[in-house]
């Protein structure tokens, strides 16, 4: 089994998923951190749910939502399932709650008193966000993106459900390790494992450094 297409596809899928899901996840995180609204605890729980569900359960839901005759599949006409797009979708679904959680902590760590003072100094709420909240939460937001990216790199269950494990098409690092082990290709499995450990190590230590050692 060739390792490099797997690594390239994995990084592409995880990076694209992170970029696509971060704006929404950050907005939801900000909403949960700074605003009170009816049903907030329900929203907060629903958003966190994919963290504790079996990834295959999430994949199963996505499978039914995005099949050609289902709600999203038909509406979007994207022909997503069992393509690399599905791998991106699965990575997005699994990274979303993690990014929301980390970003929310970053926003909550910004003293609301600072925003109030910025407003007394003439800033509109939007200006105060960009001049105070965002610069102070920035490191945490980058850390959230790194964690989301890593969740995408390691994603297996939901990906296999909706994207499959097609060599050269949807086979990512996680499914490649599984496949190598299945066919007894220990050498490849060890190489892939080494790569996964290396990327994970760098990502976790970077995000720990960015958020100043606070537990996420």
């Amino acid at each position: 089994m060739s390792v490099s297409p797997v690594v390239i596809l994995t990084v592409q899928v995880a990076a694209l998923a992170t970029v696509l899901v971060t704006p929404l996840a950050t907005a939801v995180a900000y909403l949960l951190a700074r605003h009170q609204f009816p049903g907030k605890s329900v929203v907060s729980t629903l958003v966190a749910l994919p963290l504790v569900l079996p990834p295959t359960a999430v994949g199963y839901v996505l499978l039914h939502a995005f099949s050609d005759d289902a709600l999203f599949g038909a509406a979007l006409g994207l022909e997503i399932l069992f393509t690399a797009k599905a791998a991106v979708l699965a990575a997005m679904a699994m990274a979303f709650p993690l990014i929301v959680r980390t970003a929310r902590l970053s926003f909550e760590a910004v003293d609301p008193g600072l925003v109030q003072v910025a407003e007394t100094l003439g800033d509109s709420p939007r200006q105060a966000f960009w001049r105070v909240t965002f610069p102070l939460a920035k490191r945490g937001l980058v850390a959230a993106m790194i964690l989301g990216f890593m969740r995408g790199v390691g994603e297996f269950g939901a990906t296999v459900m909706i994207a499959g494990n097609i060599p050269g098409k949807t086979r990512t690092l996680a499914s490649a390790i599984y496949s190598a082990q299945q066919v007894g290709d220990d050498a490849t499995a060890w190489v892939l494992l080494g790569l996964a450990v290396g990327v994970g190590f760098v990502a976790i230590s970077t995000s720990e450094w960015l958020i100043g050692g606070r537990p996420v």
């Binding site: 600072l114 100094l121 509109s124």
Partner: peptide, 19 residues
């Protein structure tokens, strides 16, 4: 809203912008 009152407010906790 506060941004239209043009007050110079010094809070007890100071709230200096740490960045």
């Amino acid at each position: 809203p506060p941004q239209e009152r043009a007050v110079g407010y010094l809070p007890q906790e100071l709230s200096l912008f740490p960045h």
